[in-house]
Computed example of a mutant assay.
Amino acid sequence: MEITMPATPRLDAVLETGLYVADMARARRFYETVLQLEPMFDDHRMTAYPVGPSALLLFQQGATHQTEVLPGGSIPPHRGAGGAHYAFAVAAASLDDWRSRLAAHEIDIEGEVRWPRGAVSVYFRDPDDNLLELVTPGIWANY
């Protein structure tokens, strides 16, 4: 007997990126001061920031190890630690301003790459050792 698989539905976007931080107050100072993000939600376990059509979620390490029961359902446990990587899309014309902003906050740029399609990436770290990237258009076919 042959099994027929249903058609694969399309993924539209990455809507949330979650990072785990050791010290939420320290992480919030970094993201709100250096990157000028404004929280759209925060509670005892997380802070959420809007970034374009997506959300950057900071989770307090250890605060998501148990199921979170909400009025509308439950969120399964999850965990992680620093050392992740993620990239923010930025306009090519803003890259020098970002370099200056990082320097003003005494944040070291650890690397820089000019990609074959013309994009430029600048790499630096947050206080939890996550590798952040600022990247201009042209890195991928869809950006």
Rank of each mutant, 00 (worst) to 15 (best):
M1I: 08
I3A: 11
M5S: 12
P6R: 14
T8C: 12
P9S: 15
L11P: 03
L11F: 11
V14G: 04
G18M: 15
L19N: 05
V21L: 11
V21G: 02
A22P: 00
R26M: 11
A27I: 02
E32S: 05
E32M: 07
E32Q: 13
T33G: 04
L35D: 00
L37Y: 01
M40A: 15
F41N: 04
F41H: 13
D43W: 08
H44Y: 11
M46D: 02
T47E: 01
A48V: 14
Y49R: 04
P50H: 10
P50I: 09
G52M: 13
P53S: 15
A55L: 15
L56V: 07
L56G: 01
L58G: 01
L58E: 02
L58C: 06
Q60I: 07
Q60P: 02
G62Y: 03
T64F: 05
H65G: 13
Q66F: 09
T67L: 08
E68Q: 13
G72H: 14
G72S: 14
G72I: 15
G73M: 06
S74K: 12
H78D: 03
R79F: 12
G80W: 08
G80N: 04
A81Q: 10
A81F: 07
G82E: 07
G83T: 04
G83I: 09
A84M: 14
A87Q: 00
A87E: 03
A87K: 03
A89V: 09
V90Q: 06
V90Y: 06
A93W: 00
D96K: 09
D97F: 02
W98Y: 01
W98T: 00
W98V: 01
R99A: 03
R99V: 00
L102P: 03
A103N: 06
H105C: 03
I107K: 02
I107H: 02
I107M: 00
D108H: 05
G111F: 09
E112M: 13
P116Q: 10
R117N: 14
S121M: 10
V122W: 06
Y123G: 04
D126C: 08
D126S: 06
P127Y: 05
E133H: 02
E133M: 05
L134V: 00
V135G: 03
V135R: 03
V135A: 08
P137Y: 08
P137D: 07
G138Y: 01
G138M: 09
I139R: 15
W140C: 08
W140A: 14
A141C: 00
A141K: 06
N142T: 07
